[in-house]
Design a protein around this nucleic acid. Structure first.
Lengths: 238, 238
DNA sequence: GCATATTTGTCCGTATGTATA
DNA sequence: CTATACATACGGACAAATATG
């Protein structure tokens, strides 16, 4: 649950409606199940079964399906039902293609939106430090969370609602690709790069930071791809 | 009602034997109504009325609402209904913020994805020429369409599904901002800039093209904003 | 401020069409 | 090809929230 700290930031934008519908609550449950690996990619979600188990009507459940479908976590095949998304290698490349466009652009233009009064890099710094601390104590799950938050907060510096939403969606999809891989392998190597990136940004060297980030993302993509092709997956009990 | 019950079913089935769900077809109808200005921003869409008129159940209609809500064309307010989205000036800035990030990035990296065998610039060229021809004969609607297609096809050069989808969504939202403005004012000035951009790209001067595009988008945003604040709107009969 | 009417949110039962064994 | 399972779509119902007088 500490996972959706950034989500509350998004919710604050639509603060006038903080009451959630049952469909959204159902979507929350399913989202967790999917991102935590309880429902592995490819799983078919039966309307009848889920509606019975979750004690909601099929109409409400379908609305939750729509929500998650838009987030990319579920795919809807006509007359066949909804399934947990199975990312292809092409999807992975595509996701990183968009991340590169957005994140590098944000970093490159950091100077243009300077000075909102409060320290804009505060959260970013907190994420880096949280990642370093988690690495220290071997809490790989926390390392992963900190890494995700770092990139989300990085994009947030641009102050664009749509960039924030797109990034959130991309990172959510990316989680699907993590399934079955060891968290240490997935997020471990990036703690030091996040630090380097933060330092460059703090120093105002935005162009250097953008170049660093670009190579960062390229390496990350290669890393993810090779992890997926590695047969030696870890079966981690949850 | 039982009189034409069978007729309705027949018409629905026979009119368009389709692969899409009725919800998607309803969404198509509403999408057109919205983008063509028949349903101006702020309009509330009554479930009962629309369900009756479109001869679909409320549940199906709500399904269509969700689809369009995710596209940004409708907004859903809890217990109050759905409304045609009213873009704020901030939304306009935000949309152009994302467009700049995506489109400029695509142009800058055109060299990296070179050579798919077929001429990748064919459609782009066709769009420019269509715009020039439409301008010649004063067909402002066609000018607008060609302009939209130009930018969509520009992004398509990157070969990224997610960039394509995001762009399509942004351009759809942008149409909402056009409502009430004269098409000549909206799209007229950009025919020559599209041509210039195409020529730079054709010449392989991607960096110069990216710079040109960036200024292009800045000007376009200013233009759109001032048009919105201009009280002198055109009432164009459809 | 209150009472009423309207509309949305949710759920159910059922009928029909589609995909798959 | 038949049979089965399931998604799709409908219409009715009631509760909850909102809008109206």
């Amino acid at each position: 649950m500490s996972d959706d700290g950034w989500l509350q930031g998004l919710a604050a934008g639509a603060a006038e409606l903080d009451r959630s519908s049952t469909a959204e609550r159902v979507a929350d449950v399913l989202r967790r199940r999917v991102t935590e690996g309880d429902l592995p990619p490819g799983t078919r979600l039966s309307e009848d079964q889920l509606a019975t188990v979750l004690r909601v009507s099929r109409n409400t459940l379908r609305e939750a399906f729509r929500l998650l479908g838009h987030e990319g976590l579920l795919v809807h095949r006509l007359h066949r039902g909804v399934f947990v998304t199975e990312l292809t290698d092409e999807d992975l490349v595509d996701i990183y293609r968009v991340r590169r466009a957005i994140e590098c652009d944000v970093v490159r233009r950091l100077g243009e939106v300077a000075g909102t009064g409060t320290d804009p890099l505060r959260e970013l710094r907190a994420d880096v430090e949280a990642g370093e601390a988690a690495l220290e104590r071997g809490d790989w799950s926390a390392v992963g969370t900190a890494n995700m938050h770092f990139h989300q907060h990085l994009v947030a510096l641009a102050g664009s609602r749509r960039l924030d939403e797109t990034t959130a969606r991309l990172l959510a999809e990316l989680r699907l690709a993590f399934q079955g891989a060891a968290p240490a392998q997935v997020h471990g190597p990036y703690v030091t790069r996040n630090r380097a990136l933060l330092d460059l940004i703090t120093a105002g060297r935005t162009e250097a930071a953008a170049v660093e980030l670009e190579e960062y993302l390229d390496v990350s993509l290669d890393h993810m791809t090779s992890l997926r092709h590695d047969e030696h997956r870890w079966d981690e009990a949850r």
